[in-house]
Simulated scan of single mutants.
Amino acid sequence: MITPFDVWAPMFRAPFSGDVTQEIVPRFFSPDIKGIPEIELKVQTEVASYGKQLGKILEALQALSVATNTPLPEIDELVAGVREVKAASRVEIRADAEAALERLRAVDEDGWRDVIRAP
């Protein structure tokens, strides 16, 4: 037997029950931050994200692994995992871009032509 709750329940969501994203930024006035938060924020936003910084460290570790003939399988697994995520993301981002171009074409064909002619 189906109750009214069974029919309507999927439409109701508790607070914070949807997608959750978290931006990783230094928190000002936080005792958790070692260093100067203003500098940490500038490094992350003006020089390199945490991912870019960690990527360089992983590259250096792999180079050292090869140079010293010291296997680092956990580092290799991390690098492979990052590559997989990036490859999957490229596919998703491309699909999003194609969908956006189709929406643009539907509402502004001249604008669409300008965009697709971009070098």
Rank of each mutant, 00 (worst) to 15 (best):
S89Q: 14
I93P: 12
L72S: 07
V43R: 11
K52E: 13
I75C: 12
V43T: 08
K52P: 01
E84K: 10
S65K: 06
L58T: 11
T70K: 02
L61G: 07
K86I: 11
T70V: 06
L58E: 08
I75M: 10
R90I: 10
K52F: 06
T70A: 04
P71E: 04
V66M: 07
D96I: 14
T70W: 01
L78A: 14
E84Q: 12
A95K: 10
A67Q: 09
A88S: 09
V91I: 15
E59Y: 08
T45N: 10
E77W: 06
I57M: 11
L64C: 08
A80C: 02
D76Q: 05
K52D: 01
E74A: 15
E84D: 04
K56W: 06
D96S: 13
Q53P: 00
Q62W: 03
V82T: 14
E92C: 09
S65A: 11
L61W: 11
K42S: 15
P73S: 03
N69G: 05
A48P: 07
S49N: 02
T45G: 01
A63F: 01
V66S: 10
D96R: 07
I57T: 05
A48W: 03
V47K: 00
V47Y: 03
A80H: 09
I93R: 06
P71V: 03
R83Y: 13
P71T: 00
Y50N: 09
I93A: 15
R83M: 06
E84H: 01
V91R: 02
K56H: 14
D96V: 13
T68S: 10
A67S: 09
V47S: 07
A48V: 13
Q62Y: 04
K42C: 12
P71N: 03
T70H: 08
A87D: 00
L41Q: 04
K56L: 15
A63G: 08
E74I: 05
E46D: 05
L64Q: 11
V79R: 10
V43W: 03
L64K: 15
E92V: 15
L41G: 00
I75T: 15
V43Q: 02
K56C: 05
I57A: 00
V79G: 00
P73M: 03
I57V: 14
K86Q: 08
L78H: 05
G55I: 08
E40A: 14
E74L: 12
Q44D: 06
A48D: 06
T68D: 00
V47Q: 02
P71H: 06
P73L: 04
V82H: 12
V85M: 13
E40V: 15
A97S: 05
V66C: 04
S89A: 15
E74F: 12
K42G: 04
L78Y: 08
L64Y: 10
G51L: 07
R83D: 11
R94Q: 15
